[in-house]
Amino acid sequence: MRGRALSSSSFPPARAVGRGAAWYRGDCHVHSVHSDGELTPEELALRARAAGLDFIATTEHNSAAAPGVWGQLAADDFLIVLGEEVTTRTGHWLALGLGPGEVVDWNHRVGDGLIGQCLDQVHRGGGLCVAAHPHAPYPSGDFMFPFRGFDVVEVWNGAWTSDRPWNADNEAALAEWGRSLAADIRTGAWRPAMGNSDTHLEGQIGVPHTVVLAEELSTEAVLAGIRSGRSWIAESADVDVAFTARAAGDAAGVGERLAAHGGQVDVRASVHGVPTGTVSFHTERGKVHRVSLPGDGAGAVRWGTTAEESAFVRIEVRRPDGRVAALTNPIILT
């Protein structure tokens, strides 16, 4: 259902000045004191900017962003996207890009036939539907809905490993998403991955976050970049990744298609900020190549394949203890 009409001036603008077409870093799963978080909106915005983020999304549980709270926290270089965490009995999902005061009904569950109309509501407004923390170990945390109709899967939620008993099983979510890529990539029905902090407490925001190539710093452009898979996930702003593939004189980046014309494909990755880590290349055949990074954390690695051998290529960057520091959406090879 839609909330009552509210003045848009009490909410953040849908567009910031930004840097034009660029890579922007953002955290799209954030809770404040207006749901079950411990930080005020002002504290969240301050810490997000300190973490190197260009945008955040407000995703309070089953409620709209409070009017008159977030508007003054946006800036020329900082976008605030309106959203909601829809907390159902059989899984949670993020509705991103909602209108001011808009609420998506949470009272549905797998098998009752209501999820479709809720997804349609978000899509009619140009919004994005994200399957949240598919393997969270608490009641209703496991995502039981089919991914059909959802645009994106949150494969990385919060710190990769944690002693907290409620921390999402990111390894399981990543493995499940990897299997779905292998099944869906050739049909074009694949769903991009994203990562968010699910911030509730001090010190969580931006760990991890999604780095998206957007035409501008606006809700529409950021969501379009995430929807198309032109994005990768970073543990923090200290980690940077460049990922490209080249064939027959053409090049493609993350989330894009590359026509190899039957020839060799040269896949390259450049990584900064992960000392003595590893970079692994993944296709529908699983992990196909692994390279160690030097002690200073900066390294460039290459791998060769063909479109016949590999329908896609993506990379994971892990720290020496196995924790993921970055992972990308795929480059599709044809």
Score class of each variant (00 low, 15 high):
T328D: 10
T306N: 13
P146Y: 07
G158P: 09
S10F: 08
V222L: 14
G113W: 11
G249I: 07
V265H: 01
F312N: 08
G91W: 00
W177R: 07
E176H: 05
R290C: 10
G113F: 10
G127W: 00
W303A: 04
A214M: 06
L293E: 02
A5M: 07
L98E: 02
G126P: 08
L181R: 01
A214K: 05
T328N: 10
A298Q: 11
A14R: 09
T161K: 12
D27K: 09
I331F: 08
V155P: 04
E176Q: 05
P13A: 07
V301M: 04
I205K: 09
R318K: 08
S310D: 13
W156S: 09
H34A: 09
A5C: 00
N170A: 11
R318N: 00
L73T: 10
H282T: 12
R191K: 15
A248I: 00
L174Y: 06
R257F: 10
G253A: 14
V288N: 07
R49W: 07
E216A: 15
Q117S: 14
A269K: 02
G37E: 03
Q72G: 09
H31A: 06
M1Y: 07
Q264M: 14
V130S: 02
A242M: 06
F147P: 01
V81C: 01
R285F: 14
N329C: 12
A224K: 04
I56Q: 07
R179L: 05
G295R: 15
L98V: 01
Q264E: 15
G297T: 10
S228P: 00
A247E: 06
G126R: 02
K287T: 13
D105A: 12
A16C: 10
L128C: 08
T276R: 15
V153D: 06
E309N: 13
T278R: 13
G101R: 01
D151E: 08
P137T: 07
K287S: 13
P100L: 03
R109K: 11
